[in-house]
Nucleic acid binder design. Structure first.
Length: 492
RNA sequence: CGGGAGGUAGUUCAGCUCGGUAGAAUACUUGGUUUGGGACCAAGGGGUCGCAGGUUCGAAUCCUGUCCUCCCGACCA
């Protein structure tokens, strides 16, 4: 069959691509580095977005929308941020096309229509937003300003991968302004907690919260908090970041407020974001060689019902029972689909929905119904059971909870067993090569050692965990003294 | 951006070495039989061979350019 999926063992990258393409999450496009998000992938994003949006609003944020284009002069105002993104910016230089006089039916850029000032397509929106905030903030009474936007951004990546790294992607970016440093730091931490809860409770994907080292920090930030997830191939993936921006942007864009003593001060800032990359993380954290495995809390389709029957009479009997069940499930807030399409046979449907990661499948077979039973199959363990029709809706709702929890527990066990403490360089290299995952090791805190480790092994410091245990030790590379362990890994 | 591979029917691919009417499987349509793990029979429709040039009587095939994808590398909030 054409739908076969490359196994993880054969080729992990190809397995991932197969899941995305054959699971109908996305498609390649005619634009280099850009993908089409297909309805199933977009439904997943919508579910993520809805949950996150509510969390943002529950924590006092409101949504707004800022322009896609950023005048170059604004973009370059915060130097470190501008430098950090300069190499991957798409730039608009002209505003008009015209007919090619030498090539009928073709268009060329009109050289007469050159922009006075180039427009940068936003790789992130700090510049345009802080330029705007300047006019919105005057007094401490205007603070805090807590705004989020759902948007697309463009980063001209040299090498792209579906969902994980594409030239254009969808995300949300929160940008907040505060009167005090403490409040801004509290906000930064609060949002990384929001992300961590989202990842663990909804995506069933355990994460480690931590702080980035200086070299991995967001350009223009004082501190970058991160949630780091672990994929099944032992590579880490940065799933969300929250930045304490200090007063860097306030100074660059001259955003001040007068305090209660009528003294002007620069405001304190944060920004935080997660993107469609989360979909890639979700896929790689849970799925298997038969296809996607989606957590019930985010799955666009949580339950699929497949009938098996001979003749109209049996079909009518099944329809009646299914309709009653679906009404109950929907009342319980369950997203359910009844696939009584006659073009495909049950076996085909089983494989298809397994590939698409539907958490629970119910088979209504005429034979079982005579005994008041249906077959219930769960995607995560592929376990199948005959279950009584009595109280079936409750059984399914409980089962979905169980699938969700089991997915988290399984991923958590994997993560826990792949955090390895090492105390020597030999061990470091050995664990990295043979086992993968996070390596907990002492680091002397210098960018030089960090860089050398990266050069030698491709492993980077993923984070310094929050509430990290303080212990004396020596750097795994340099042998210099160290106060705490940090987490290294090869990463996406 | 460097190295390698690839682009032919909706999909997966053969055909290219050695130029001569565009192929298979599957999917699709119609009819029938089926239905407990990717059903079967019969008939039918579908491709200017990624795009643009060139060589040639003739190009999917040879040459040049270009676009897109994958893998490895460099780069990467």
């Amino acid at each position: 069959m054409s739908k076969e999926i490359t196994s993880r063992a054969d080729d992990y990258s190809q397995w991932y691509n197969d899941l995305i393409i054959k699971g109908q999450l996305a498609d390649y496009s005619a634009v280099r580095g850009c993908m089409v998000i297909k309805p199933l992938g977009y439904a997943l994003w919508e579910n993520m977005r809805d949950v996150l949006d509510k969390k943002f609003k529950d924590t006092g944020h409101v949504n707004a929308y800022f322009p896609l284009f950023v005048p170059k002069s604004l973009f370059e105002a915060e130097e470190k941020n501008a430098e950090g993104f300069a190499k991957e910016c798409a730039v608009v230089t002209h505003y008009r096309l015209k007919n090619d006089p030498n090539n009928k039916g073709k268009l060329i850029v009109d050289p007469e229509a050159k922009l006075e000032e180039e427009l940068v397509v936003r790789p992130t929106s700090e510049a345009i937003i802080w330029n705007t905030y300047k006019t919105w903030i005057q007094s401490y009474r205007d603070l805090p300003l807590l705004i989020n936007q759902w948007a697309n951004v463009v980063r001209w990546e040299m090498r792209t991968r579906l969902f994980l790294r594409t030239a254009e992607f969808l995300w949300q970016e929160g940008h907040t302004a505060h009167a005090t440093k403490e409040e801004a730091i509290t906000e930064t931490k609060q949002m990384i907690d929001v992300y961590a809860h989202f990842a663990e409770y909804y995506m069933a994907m355990p994460v480690i919260r931590g702080v980035k080292s200086a070299s991995e920090r967001f350009a223009g930030a004082e501190d970058t908090y991160t949630i780091e997830a672990l994929m099944q191939d032992g590579k880490a993936l940065q799933a969300g970041t929250s930045h304490f921006l200090g007063q860097n942007f306030a100074k660059a864009f001259d955003v001040t407020f007068v305090n209660k003593e009528n003294k002007p001060e620069h405001v304190w800032a944060t920004s935080w974001g997660v993107s469609t990359r989360l979909i890639g993380a979700l896929v790689m954290a849970h799925s298997d060689d038969d296809g996607l495995i989606l957590p019930p809390r985010l799955a666009p389709m949580q339950v699929v019902i497949v009938p098996i029957y001979k003749g109209d009479e049996q079909k009518a009997m099944i329809d009646e029972k299914v309709n009653a069940l679906m009404a109950q499930l929907r009342q319980g807030g369950i997203r359910v689909k009844y696939d009584d399409n006659d073009n495909t046979r049950p076996g085909w449907k089983f494989a298809e929905y397994e590939m698409k990661g539907v958490p629970v499948r119910i088979t209504f077979g005429a034979r079982d119904l005579e005994n008041n039973l249906v077959e219930v199959a769960r995607r995560d363990t592929k376990e199948k059971n005959s279950v009584s029709l009595d109280g079936l809706a409750e059984t399914i709702i409980t089962l979905l909870e169980d699938v969700q929890n089991n997915m988290f527990n399984k991923a958590k066990a994997y993560q826990q067993s792949h955090i390895t403490e090492v105390n020597s360089w030999e061990e470091f290299e050995k664990v990295l090569e043979e086992k993968g995952g996070f390596i907990s090791a002492h680091w002397d805190g210098t960018p030089e050692s960090e860089e050398e480790i990266k050069q030698k092994t491709k492993a980077t410091i993923r984070c310094i965990p929050i509430d990290n245990k303080q212990e004396d030790g020596v750097c795994v590379l340099s042998g210099k003294p160290s106060k705490e362990r940090v987490l290294f890994a090869r990463a996406y």
